[in-house]
Design a binder for these strands. Structure first.
Lengths: 198, 198, 198, 198
DNA sequence: TATGAATGAGTCTTCATTCAT
DNA sequence: TATGAATGAAGACTCATTCAT
């Protein structure tokens, strides 16, 4: 039942955000007393944090997992981009979820910032130096790592953010959208690779 | 006073979204009675819709305004991309605002869909045919119009969506961020142009 | 209506204390919506504080009011004791109210302490020096001012604290109790005066 | 474990009263399951009553215990007063506890009244007749027994009721307060003896 | 004897909305 | 046009209590 609440809450938080999800609604959907939600998680906030951290972990870990330093740089890039995109295909609501919660609630942003600030600095540094090495070898054009990251994140995230609009305007069903997304993944890789040509 | 309410409400809705803005807060910030908000706009929903449509109009019109069919296609592209980006620099909260309200509340999305479905079809068709003409002339590589649009929207919108995170992690102030954004605009044009090379 | 709520709340707070009085009950007794209680006073705490301060002021001011320095010391003493006792006859629930709220909630005690610490120091000092003067003249036996104060407060307050018990055990009605209280006032003065004889 | 609950509950009830002590809190402090409290005592009310009666018995019995009819009246008086005061020094929270619970909850008062009404009548009668005998012998001035009792109770109880205030205002620690209390015991005896002088 | 799970009733509080003025 | 008063509904949360194990 605790698991049940957790899953239902995750679903609702992903769909409607923290503010617009009531514990009453969670309880109703689970089919239990509203007090039970508080019995297991004390407060709505704690319940949310549990879910939030799980999702944040899913997101971050999957991005870093697939990098293989023995591969050539271009190949590594392609792999990371694609695995990031694949993750989003599995959890298409994640981008909106994080934008929503972190933009709406500055405290959440601070908490995450202070938590993440330590961990990925080495990853970022390694990526930066690898990138610089490629630039020095004349393999790719000079570019700031941060600029490059923004490009990747932009191209990968937006298709999923935009999904509801897209479907509303084109009356496209999930299957059709998925087909487009598979195409989109290749397109993103292509755009990014082209953007790096010296 | 009506105008005053409208502006204050817009500011708050942009900052905190529909759900987390109360009419009490609007009234307090305006300096008027809470009932006055309802006197002018009947319901919080109506007030929101008024503002929402104004912002939607701002967004859409400014994108289309700067297109000059007498210019060469590449130049037109550059101009539309840049004017879109410029608009977002003036209203950096717009992207999040729309994502938030439209994703959270499906009714809003439907309303907007049925409203917009008619209007921009001609614009899109004209753009599609212009694009196809360029492709036929061998000036740009074959590409679906929709794919191209997603590229443009992705690259332009995300830097503003990402702003709060970026600032939280890098402790960058607004001025520094703006400097980066100016650089980013050029970068976006560059990436998009490269992506179109045959 | 605001006044109505205030009075009803005072009555209930005096009878049952802060913790055991619910805003629902106040509203029910007033005959209004429960939200109205919060409309006027925001929180139960604020409502309580309003009442608390009024009562504290009533208490303190009435004690100090009747002191006339031109009178002989013994006469002044008698007057202050009697006016204190008279006040309690008018507001017999005050002693319990203060003991209850201040003992139960340490924050309340601190707030009151920091508020009162400034004001009555002069009064206490004047009383101390007047007392010492009498002692020096050999009119009354040597005694610490604080010890004397405890005597007075003890004798005056307890008869009212004890009232509910007394009535429960003796099945005495309010009229009979009042008669005893009038007798008690004289008795208190008598005991105190005797206690001061050199 | 039952004993453990009982003791912990007593401590909490003395500190914060019935209303402000939750069974959850008792269980947490005991280190057991919340349901166990109900397993042993059925309801919070029953648990409270058990404790209440124990404390009431402690209070009453200790007062009566030390009376030795073979001693001279004045000596007996002094002894009872002092043993009462000593009991309060050991259990300084008792006075507030009884005032609080009995004033707040009339049912509790009735229950106690009907229970005590039978028992101490003989004690009171013996005391009354002893007192009257002294008055007849001209050893003490004419006084109603009840008036005399109020005097004793007032002087003995209030110093303990007043303790939190006193410490808040004077920033006195427990040790200093105890020193004053020892002085106070003598003072009370002195005042009471003087009050009886013919 | 002891516990984890579950619940119904109740608490304070906020909010959008209405209405008389 | 503008406001103060009033309300019903809903929200998060707490608590005493019960029950199966």
């Amino acid at each position: 039942m605790e698991q049940n609440i957790l899953e239902t809450a995750e679903e609702l938080f992903l769909d409607k955000g923290f503010a617009m999800t009531s514990t009453t609604e969670i309880a109703r959907k689970v089919g239990c007393n509203q007090a039970l939600v508080h019995y297991y998680f004390r407060t709505k906030e704690k319940l949310f944090e549990t879910i939030f951290e799980r999702l944040a972990h899913t997101m971050v870990s999957s991005i870093l997992r697939d990098d293989d330093p023995t591969q050539p740089f271009e190949e590594r890039l392609r792999l990371v981009i694609e695995s990031h995109f694949d993750l989003l295909m599995k959890h298409p609501k994640l981008p909106f979820f994080f934008f929503n919660e972190l933009t709406t609630n500055p405290k959440r942003l601070e908490a995450l910032a202070s938590k993440l600030k330590v961990i990925p600095s080495t990853v970022l540094q390694r990526f930066s130096s690898d990138l610089q090495a490629e630039i020095d070898r004349g393999r790719i054009r000079p570019i700031e790592p941060i600029m490059f990251l923004i490009t990747v994140v932009s191209l990968n995230i937006t298709p999923f953010l935009v999904k509801p609009f897209f479907q509303a305007f084109t009356e496209m069903d999930d299957k059709q959208y998925k087909a487009i997304m598979i195409e989109r993944k290749k397109e993103n890789v292509r755009i990014i690779m082209r953007s790096l040509v010296p």
